[in-house]
Design a protein around this nucleic acid. Structure first.
Lengths: 225, 225
DNA sequence: CCCAAGGTTCGCCGACCACCGAAGCGTCCG
DNA sequence: CGGACGCTTCGGTGGTCGGCGAACCTTGGG
């Protein structure tokens, strides 16, 4: 009936092509300027400004003014998660942004979800961490074990107590349709993967491209993928 | 960039008040006729028909023609999950369908999510099942243990192999912001709770109302709530 | 101090779409 | 077999909202 939160406003914000494109661009995790987002969405700066204002008051993105630049980022992990969820539905219904091209498999293979690794490799990584006893599933929320903390230390992930953000969090993956690892640990692992030179972001996309030796090293730690 | 599923269509479908109301009504889990949904959404049958056709082709609802009635239901658990996710965002941004009234706490206490129990009691139930060793969390997906199967038998839940639907599944709860139990087991438990007379659906809402002895019995099995 | 660049605000236009009235089509029932 | 019912389809209409041009504001730099 007429109870509970009103989905309409949030859904409508995501249901407009220009805004959806901006949000998708921000799924990469890094903050982008208004101008960049305008180009990304294919609209003029004025139009983008209007959209961004709406997204901000709708609680989907945050704004940080820096000099004469306005940097925007997703308001939180929740937003990225909800979008992946919608992507799942869209995928099942066959609503694609373009015909699945050669880069589509790469996107399913490994991509960025906000600030952590998603796709086949992301799911495999979480699987491995659980199999290795470094993460356990307690009532649907993931917990980093003692061994997990030791692993993080060895691997070079600093687990700073980042506000109220959880250390580990399950995030649904639209392509594999299973969970991958989010949270401080998930973000830390990905940035470490970058730092180790195992992989790098493909310019202007969400694709994470592993080098051959990088993939071998990844598989050495997390098993054959 | 221009890759992956197109969120726009699905989100736009949910972003219109009439359609969102229909979907919300269907979150109760039972199939409703076009006329009922029209009344629920506050529009004429013609308009509702148009909306329902869109929701159907969008893959959000399914239609079953029965005589001169058209019954609609959510296309699957995914849809309910995605909506709960959006509700989480809307809740945080303070977008409410009405000012939080007296029935709002009841909705947070115990409600139906598609076909299983959600709200405080739903989360508590999953917590208890995990604490009792009847469900374990394996890599983000819930698994029913041997003891869990025995419990289901004793409790009177028939776990028919229902197609490819998972036995247990974590579903994010917008009010508690933690997971409750979905899947065949979650649905079975709720219908058993109805059958035992512990609770009943409040007419026309998603609220699940426990009787005093029913709540006592619930707490006897799943612990104090 | 002036000028260029990034962003926002304002105002108008055009397209999309929700909405309803009217009509048409199958189904159930007397 | 006629009439009521449930639902859909078709046309026309109005409101909403995305879009852009122009002007304005602020920052940074020479």
């Amino acid at each position: 009936m007429r109870l509970g939160p009103d989905i309409t406003r949030v859904a409508a914000l995501m249901g407009e092509p220009a805004r959806a494109n901006m949000l998708s661009a921000l799924m990469g995790g890094q903050a982008l300027t208004a101008g960049e987002l305008a180009r990304e969405a294919g609209v003029t700066p004025q139009t983008a400004s209007s959209h961004l204002a709406q997204l901000e008051t709708g609680g989907l993105v945050t704004r940080r003014v820096q000099g004469r630049h306005n940097y925007f980022a997703l308001a939180g992990q929740d937003v990225a998660e909800a979008m992946e969820h919608l992507a799942l539905l869209a995928d099942r219904a066959g609503h694609m942004r373009t015909r699945p091209g050669p880069r589509d498999p790469a996107l399913r293979r490994a991509r960025v979800c906000y600030d952590h690794l998603a796709g086949e490799l992301g799911v495999a990584m979480l699987d491995a961490l659980v199999a290795q006893g470094r993460i356990v599933d307690a009532e649907g929320s993931l917990v980093l074990t003692e061994a997990g903390h030791a692993f993080a230390r060895d691997f070079g992930v600093a687990l700073a107590p980042a506000g109220r953000r959880p250390l580990c969090k399950a995030c649904l993956d639209w392509s594999v349709r299973r969970s991958h690892l989010a949270g401080v640990m998930g973000a830390g692992l990905l940035s470490r993967i970058y730092a180790l030179g195992w992989a790098r972001r493909m310019e202007g996309t969400r694709i994470v491209q592993f080098s051959a030796p990088g993939l071998a090293a990844f598989e050495g730690v997390f098993g054959r993928v």
